[in-house]
Design a binder for these strands. Structure first.
Length: 460
RNA sequence: GGCCUGGUGGCAGAGUGGUCAUGCAGCGGCCUGCAAAGCCGUGAACGCCGGUUCGAUUCCGACCCAGGCCUCCA
């Protein structure tokens, strides 16, 4: 089985072959830490995290970097408003980012480069671009000269002419050409800045990713991932800077772009204000259901974020964990990932198909009567779940989810369930039903089994 | 306006030139004191119009609709 990835560069699925057989390199554009991120920001980390796990299974070594951009005008603005150094802002939100991603089951990358730790590399890259004629200094700025890179626009499929013709933004007077973008810009005394050949200043938006990729991986990386909204201008500019700084060597060989999360059919975005912060969503829903929701559509498709979607994911997990609960007595060790799940993932990360395969395995497992067969299927279910970052908790923990912090006390629920059981055994069904109804009103569903009663937190 | 996606059953969402996606919800049955869970069975789809083909939801073209990027954005 081999991995196929849809490459934004060619707009086609391509077999993935790493540049060096012994090492795969992958870079995901991480957050600019000026605020809490929203649930849409988690889609890339979740699906590309699944890709990272997949690559680790199929190649001897993966080095996966996800950056933190910790210098930026929005950070500066927040720092000025709160009268604190930018580090106070960036430390706080970088920590929150890690915490929220962790809650969603996103693995930490191997490397987490910070832009402010790469200022010398950024300056060096600017100098090289100036020396080679691809950039120029003007009024304390360093600008990339788009016209020196004829392939500019290749990734996002747009021509320089069209962009210049359609330019709506006022062009700064120091730009030679309207499409030129800033690599370095001057800082006023109240803004953070670093000494440079062009005076005290700070990096522009795109250069940090180029510099960090180079620092971590060298001139050419295998896979570069990010949201489709970053394709232009961010990724296009990264390509231009890196290729020109490296004498024409390719920058990223495979570009992967994830689709946007929508709210009522519109992109969830900070500028539109139609966002759900991750901590808000986590407060109201099981994290694993949110993770499942983020992979419920193929990563390149847009995904409508609704309460109904989350509820459906909770029910889906109820069923999968229900299967595992039924198989609780079957002992299994670590197993191989079922072929149906793995082949779906190898086909451009087709998570919906992988989930369908998982559902099929669960159904087979419930029907199987032979213990050896049940063990095999349970092992496959757990291994397939692990590949997706799902199904790794104790089923009992899933069904009792949120009782401790949701104002419900598991021991008290147990006591009520026992009361009902006693009433039942006394054939006082009216009382038993009254207790069950009361618990249902608290969101607890009681189920009777041959082994005695059990309960779970109901899907909303 | 330019460039680019996509329109699949009640909902979500894969996929395919000619037999099944899958999940949730629904319906009938089994089980249950009654339920729930589970099991068995079951209906239901490919935006619109042409074309290619023995045959198209799948390929081609036009049209309609929705969304994204062109400005900070995952």
């Amino acid at each position: 089985m081999s991995l196929t990835l849809f490459n934004s560069l060619s707009r086609k699925p391509e077999p993935f072959v790493p540049l060096h057989p012994d090492r795969v390199t992958m870079y995901v554009c991480g957050p600019t830490v000026y605020n809490y991120v929203h649930i849409g920001n988690a889609r890339g980390p979740v699906v590309f995290g699944i890709l990272a796990r997949l690559l680790r299974r199929h190649f001897p070594r993966l080095v996966y970097a996800r950056n933190i951009t910790d210098v930026d005008d929005k950070i500066n603005q927040a720092a000025i408003e709160q009268q604190v150094p930018i580090g106070t802002i960036t430390d706080k939100f970088a920590a929150a980012y890690r915490e929220h991603m962790g809650a969603l089951g996103v693995d930490l990358p191997d490397l987490e480069p910070h832009a402010t730790a790469h200022i010398p590399q950024i300056i060096a890259m600017c100098e090289r671009l100036i020396e080679s004629g691809h950039a120029y200094a003007a009024e304390g700025h360093v600008l990339f000269a788009v016209e020196t890179y004829p392939e500019y626009g290749q990734l996002s499929r747009r021509s320089t002419d069209e962009m210049l013709a359609g330019a709506r933004v006022e062009v700064a007077p120091y730009k030679r050409s309207a499409g030129d973008f800033v690599l370095w810009k001057p800082s006023t005394p109240e803004l953070p800045g670093w000494d440079s050949p062009w005076g005290r200043g700070r990096p522009g938006w795109h250069i940090e990713c180029s510099a960090m990729c180079e620092a971590a991986f060298g001139e050419t990386i295998d896979i570069h991932c990010g949201g489709i909204d970053l394709q232009f201008p961010h990724h296009e500019n990264e390509v231009a800077q890196s290729v020109c700084a490296h004498g024409g060597k390719p920058f990223a060989r495979y570009w992967l772009h994830n689709g946007m999360l929508n709210m009522d059919g519109r992109k969830m975005s900070k500028s539109l204000g139609n966002v759900f912060r991750i901590d808000e969503v986590l407060a109201n829903h099981p994290a694993e259901a949110l993770r499942l929701a983020l992979m419920s559509a193929h990563y390149r498709q847009p995904l409508d974020w609704t309460e109904g979607l989350i509820e459906q994911c909770v029910r889906t997990l109820d069923r999968l964990y229900g299967t595992l609960r039924e198989l609780a007595s079957i002992q299994v060790g670590a197993g191989a990932i079922p072929e149906t799940v793995e082949s779906a993932l190898l086909d451009d990360l087709n998570t919906p198909q992988a989930l369908a395969a998982l559902a099929q395995i669960a159904a087979d497992a419930r029907r199987a009567s032979d213990d050896a067969e049940r063990a095999r299927l349970k092992s496959g279910l757990l291994a397939g779940g692990l590949a997706l970052g799902l199904l790794q908790q104790d089923p009992a923990a899933w069904f009792a989810r949120g009782t401790a912090d949701g104002g419900l006390d598991a021991a008290a629920i147990d006591a009520r369930v026992q009361e009902r059981q006693a009433a039942k055994q006394a054939r006082d069904f009216a009382r038993a039903d009254a207790i069950r109804k009361q618990l249902a009103e608290q969101g607890i569903e009681v189920e009777d089994t041959p082994a005695g009663p059990r309960w779970k937190v109901a899907a909303k």
